[in-house]
Amino acid sequence: MKDVTKSFFENGKEFKVLEPLRFGLAERDFVCVVGPSGCGKSTLLRIIVGLEPPTSGQVLFEGQPIRADNPQVAMVFQSFALFPWLTVQQNVELGLEAKGTHPEERQRIARKFIEAVGLTGFEDAYPRELSGGMKQRVGIARALGIEPLLLCMDEPFSSLDPLTAQNLRDEILQLWSNPDLPPRAVLMVTHAIEEAVYMADRVIVLSSRPGRMVAELSIDLPRPRNRKEPEFYGWVDEIYSLIV
């Protein structure tokens, strides 16, 4: 990702959302972008997956400019963004169908990832019949289903209650620790500093409006991490002081 900026124009006036940013992701990277609300984190993620064009600069994926429908990049949304008229199975199969996967193959892969997120038995349920945590599991299964190289998550735990969110975090780390499962790299956007320190190998800290990269930190704590340890709090406090 090279020198990406983003501005919005309104009545001829320019509003800078993101100052020039530059960073890269490598194999087996789990990177978190943290920053206060309204610092352009979500915009950044939308630019990275190609949903929005940058005002200037370029996002490169394996040397090529990124495109929204790139099947090697998958996205998990804060609002889950499940299709209310499709069952769990159909939601998970959706990206595979767009990829042109054969129906039987599609069904097999979808079942595998539904099982991986622990939703076996709910294949024929509709999203509105599921709890928040279960909905986000479907969102994750759908993203993993297209077997992406890069998984992007936009505040995936923000609309869940704290207990559910913590369980799901551990489950995602569990899935991540299994090298047989996709993806090869994860990029997550969050405003919760603790969450970033708990999950990421690297944390990119953005300042508030316009978004500017303040620091890039490598969290070298051993996994599984313990929230109660002083080292953990050391990291949290450092990031906190960078933002304020």
Binding site: A68, D69, M75, S79, F80, A81, F83, L94
Partner: peptide, 21 residues
């Protein structure tokens, strides 16, 4: 909802598939 549009785009739904789903 904007996110649903974004999901459709991110998962590569275009043309007929996008209309249908």
């Amino acid at each position: 909802p904007q996110d649903l549009e974004a999901a459709a785009a991110a998962f590569g739904l275009r043309g007929w598939l996008r209309f249908r789903y």
